[in-house]
């Protein structure tokens, strides 16, 4: 690539271009995420509710997935409730849960002991990120120190031992 082209490309990739790109992305996301796609059809609504209810006689399948007669029966009940148009999705699910107990809920409640299933992943995620940040901090502090004998030995070993390492960024 000639020097002129390189310089031109450098200008093209400068921060104003990134700003423009960022703006375009934000506008597109806002337009796409907020525009009205029309009301859900009854069928779509039945599917959405069925995905949140477990088939009571199956092995861990939702009513949406299962072809069992119990699932069929609950799907029909959901279809009737949706057609009647009086209840919200949550109310329809609450009615089914009242008939079959919480075993038909595919989304665990966020209260009591069940809340653990929501809290633990977040706690683990936060701890993992904190651990990573702590590790990077420790490594940054170590970088100021003089290389140890181990470090020197490692470098010497790597320089003398040839193996088929690949350079991942071929530039």
């Amino acid at each position: 690539m000639s020097t002129g082209t390189t310089r031109l490309m450098g200008k093209v990739k400068s921060w104003p271009s990134w700003m423009v790109m960022g703006l375009v992305v934000v506008v597109l996301l806002t337009v796409g995420a907020t525009r009205d796609n029309g009301p859900l059809t009854q069928s779509d609504r039945i599917d959405a509710i069925s995905r949140r209810v477990a088939c009571p006689t199956c092995d861990g399948e939702s009513v949406y997935v299962s072809r069992a007669s119990a699932a069929e029966s609950i799907r029909n009940q959901i279809a009737r409730d949706v057609a009647a148009g009086r209840l919200t999705d949550d109310e329809i699910i609450a009615n089914i849960a009242a008939s079959f107990q919480a075993r038909v809920l595919l989304v665990p409640r966020a209260t009591g002991f069940d809340a653990l299933v929501w809290v633990l992943p977040i706690a683990v995620g936060v701890c993992a990120v904190a651990g990573l940040a702590a590790a990077f901090r420790r490594w940054r502090l170590q970088q100021g120190s003089v290389p140890s004998d181990d470090d020197r030995a490692l470098v010497a070993g790597l320089l003398t031992t040839a193996h088929d390492d690949e350079d991942d960024e071929v530039l």
Binding site: R51, R52, A54, G60, E61, S62, V65, Q101, A102, R103, V104, L105, L106, V107, P108, F113, D114, V117
Partner: peptide, 13 residues
Amino acid sequence: ALQDRQLVVGEPF
């Protein structure tokens, strides 16, 4: 095991 009740954790979770 702990509470002797049944629960399903499914696709939405």
